[in-house]
Amino acid sequence: MIGGSPLLSALFHDEPTIDALERLGLGVSSVGNHEFDEGPAELRRIVDGGCHPEDGCSPGAINAAMIRDVEFHDELPVIERYSRELTRQGVRAQVVLIHEGESVKGQAGAGCDDGGPGAKLGGRIKEIAERAVPAVDLVVSGHSHFSYECTVNDPAGHRRLVTRADSFGRSFTDLRFDLNRAGDVVRSTVRATFRPVPVDTARQPAMAELVETWRARSEDVANRVVGHITADMPGRGSTLPETPLGSFLADAQVAAGKPQGADRLLADTVRIDGRPLSPDTTYKVALNEFLANGGNGFTVFGDITAREGGEVTDLDALVTRLETTTSATSPAAPPAPGRITFVAR
């Protein structure tokens, strides 16, 4: 819901997103990794309302450093606990809304059940969907950005649907089901329909006005010139496995870490100053805080206690690199590929 958002929203701590979702009538949302981008206190402020402690009131995979005082528990016991509590209150129709998703991009999707219930679904979400207490009728998942509608068998052997829609509002899942006289979901009636959101949908005046209001408030920052380049530097949109933007960001982070002696790794296996890595040598590595805290599976970095720097964000490093090394008469060219040697894919 918040975090990982465009400048238009991120610049104002995602209050524009909350404003838009409230107008759309959003009633409930799960908490995911990006909800903790600015820490639990900021998430609580988003939920309860109030001004940002530093910036005041706007005009109108989690960084470990932000959640050191937050406990995350195994999902299955938590689901069981609250399912029993709901059952005691007489609630029979139970749906789990969870920010956990399919582990492999596009693995599920169409034909998820070809070969058996949830045959193409994998990862932690499948385990949760299969093992959650039988009282749970339906699982609505998230995180992985790609849609799927799959069925699994619950511990009692009954059919249970697990779904997710595409990220960034590209689609939504239309869920329909019947309730019996006891108020429980009739599993055989559960239907999930994938609904893409076409880009040529007519603009809604009220929402368009809201977007343009926040866009106007962000113009000064969005239009600020911080540097010059000779051509686009695509990242996710690149057709190359070694992206130009990734290489440029790496150079910016190395430059920011130079005062502490950091340098970038060279291609041809892994070499520094032309020499192969030695397990008996101590090296300094420049990287962003998310990876330094063990994010994206780089768990060894999280175990390292000898650290220097940390005052400069990756965005600050990029802006400084552009401001100090480029100009209108001397723009930066996209870094040439070849730093990384792919030995297997």
Rank of each mutant, 00 (worst) to 15 (best):
T193W: 06
P59A: 13
P337Y: 07
L179I: 03
A202W: 05
H13W: 12
A110V: 04
R159C: 00
S9V: 00
D166P: 06
F298D: 13
F290E: 13
T269M: 10
G261W: 08
P59M: 14
P337R: 07
P196E: 06
G49V: 01
R88D: 10
E209W: 01
G295N: 08
D263P: 04
D280Q: 07
R164D: 02
L7T: 04
S103G: 08
F342R: 13
T87L: 15
R275P: 04
E75M: 12
E35I: 04
R215H: 15
A61T: 14
T189V: 10
R159D: 04
Y82C: 05
E38P: 06
H145E: 07
R88L: 05
D316F: 01
H143I: 10
T151A: 05
L8C: 09
L210Y: 01
G302H: 07
V300T: 15
R23G: 08
A135W: 09
I18Q: 09
S5I: 05
G111M: 11
D184F: 06
S147L: 01
P198I: 03
A192M: 09
G49Q: 07
K284Q: 13
F194H: 13
R44E: 10
I98Y: 06
S171N: 03
E71S: 12
E54S: 13
F72D: 07
P40E: 12
A222K: 15
A292C: 11
G27D: 15
D200S: 01
A132R: 12
E71N: 11
G39F: 14
G90F: 12
L318D: 03
F72G: 03
A292Q: 05
V152E: 04
E127M: 08
C112Q: 00
T230V: 12
E308A: 08
N63L: 12
I125A: 00
I125D: 01
I125S: 00
G118D: 06
Y82E: 08
P279G: 02
A286N: 06
E15C: 02
V285L: 14
